[in-house]
């Protein structure tokens, strides 16, 4: 049981990854508005902000990125880059930011926006999309609103998991 506790965050993030695909499938409105459904990204950012000294989280992000790339896209280098970088960015930022909901909420939205931009540029560079930059711009606002909504709703859950069940940290050390 103690062993399982160390992996709770990883299991929750993995389930969030699966949920991303399910929500995207059952809520077609998201695709119509050009919205990326990345609950995993929000989770990784918030866990990274709370557990800023845990470098294992970056590896967790990398593994989740590999799974997401293999399962959803069949190519590597999209989520494999976005997820660990989101954790790294969040952990770096947490050193300067005050521990408050509003700052963390804002960080989530900023990281979501940067990830959306990277995602579009990477797809454009390798020829997986040919849509214009203007279309990406028009999808930015719905993406930010969705990110704001997701992070506000899931904030207590990720905070609870990061505090109660820190990833791969033995309870005896506390």
């Amino acid at each position: 049981m103690r062993y399982l506790k160390r992996w709770t965050v990883a299991i929750a993030l993995f389930l969030a990854l699966i949920l991303d695909g399910s929500i995207s499938h059952f809520v077609p409105l998201l695709q119509d508005w050009g919205v990326n459904c990345w609950l995993t990204l929000i989770g990784l950012t918030l866990v990274g902000l709370e557990d800023e000294h845990n470098h294992q989280l970056i590896w967790l992000g990398l593994v989740l990125g590999l799974i997401a790339d293999a399962y959803y896209l069949g190519i590597f280098g999209i989520y494999t880059f976005i997820f660990p970088m989101a954790v790294f960015g969040a952990q770096q930022l947490s050193r300067f930011l005050p521990v408050s909901f509003w700052f963390r909420w804002g960080t989530c939205i900023i990281i979501y926006a940067v990830a959306t931009l990277y995602h579009f540029l990477a797809f454009y560079l390798v020829g997986l999309t040919q849509v214009s930059f203007r279309i990406w711009q028009s999808s930015l606002m719905p993406n930010l609103i969705w990110a704001a909504l997701l992070s506000a709703i899931s904030y207590p859950l990720w905070l609870y998991l990061a505090t109660k069940f820190p990833f791969l940290v033995r309870e005896e050390t506390y």
């Binding site: 695909g21 995207s24 990326n36 959803y72 896209l73 995602h119 849509v131």
Partner: peptide, 15 residues
């Protein structure tokens, strides 16, 4: 049956 859809908007992939 469709079990998942790529969560990003630019890839248009179903599983």
């Amino acid at each position: 049956s469709v079990i998942s859809r790529s969560p990003d908007t630019w890839s248009d992939i179903l599983v």
